[in-house]
């Protein structure tokens, strides 16, 4: 790892001010992607601004049908929340399958979505649950937030502070993990929203990162069943092709994962 300067932020404002006075800083939350990336010298920020101790960014709040998860809430905390599980078990189950138990004690939802790894799990859930991403500057619709592989709508000095979404009528996430890395080779989060809409978020497969599958959404809106999406086409041209799986294989996986998710939804 190249040299860096560590700073612990006490508040969102403090983090922004520390970012402003540094040369080429990065925010770090759990660091479960950033630290390994720095160890490999694929990233070399001059400064690290630690958001993990910002109290206002922690915790899960449920207000009627609205769920708000603070950005510094760990995967383990999302997985273990009984209140959240009562109204949206799918997001708890998704969090419980990210990485491994030790990674889940450090990694956070804000870090995951701000990094927008093309194989990360949370972005698919945010897309399907029609989440609003709150930052220190504004609120961003999830459809506008993820802009490409490892790219988001965030400015350099912008921090995800929380995500908010309505509890769905039904939802589930199904992923096919790479047998070695356990990252999703295809992961599909399906959600039947209480306003009648159906949304389908796909991760691990898209050449530009997470995406929604609108044909499946249309089919599921009419009939929430795995048979309704049997004839939907997943275009392999838009998918990743690598040594683990070519794009045609991934296209099939997306369909299979979507069907399994619909069948598992509750």
């Amino acid at each position: 790892m190249y040299e860096t300067n560590y700073h612990r932020a006490s508040s969102v404002e403090d983090a922004i001010s520390k970012m402003g006075s540094a040369d080429d800083a990065k925010f770090v939350s759990g660091g479960q992607t950033l630290i390994p990336t720095m160890k490999q010298r694929l990233a070399a920020p001059s400064d690290l601004i630690d958001l993990r101790h910002v109290d206002s960014m922690k915790g899960i709040t449920i207000d009627g049908n609205q769920i708000t998860i603070g950005a510094a809430t760990t995967h383990a905390e999302v997985n273990a929340s009984k209140e959240l599980r009562a109204i949206c078990p799918a997001i708890c189950d998704l969090a419980g399958h990210i990485g491994d138990p030790h990674v889940r004690h450090m990694g956070t939802i804000g870090g995951s979505i701000a990094n927008n790894d093309p194989a990360a799990d949370y972005p698919a859930a945010m897309m399907a649950l029609n989440a609003q991403i709150a930052t220190n500057k504004r609120t961003i619709d999830t459809d506008d937030f993820f802009t490409g592989m490892f790219e988001t709508a965030l400015d350099e000095d912008e921090i995800v502070t929380a995500v908010t979404f309505p509890a769905p009528a039904k939802a589930a996430y199904s992923k096919f993990p790479n047998p070695a890395s356990r990252y999703a080779m295809a992961g599909v989060f399906v959600a039947k929203l209480k306003n009648g809409m159906a949304r389908v978020g796909v991760t691990g497969a898209g050449a530009d990162g997470v995406f929604r599958h609108e044909d499946m959404e249309e089919a599921l809106k009419g009939d929430w069943s795995s048979s309704s999406i049997a004839d939907c086409k997943v275009d392999a041209d838009d998918l990743l092709s690598d040594l683990h799986a070519d794009n045609n294989y991934r296209a099939n996986l997306v369909k299979v994962m979507a069907k399994r998710a619909v069948e598992a939804s509750s």
Binding site: Y6, R8, Q32, H102, V103, M106
Partner: peptide, 14 residues
Amino acid sequence: KAVKSCTTLAAQAN
């Protein structure tokens, strides 16, 4: 809580 100490800075555990 169990964490991977090769993926945590000492300063993070201050």
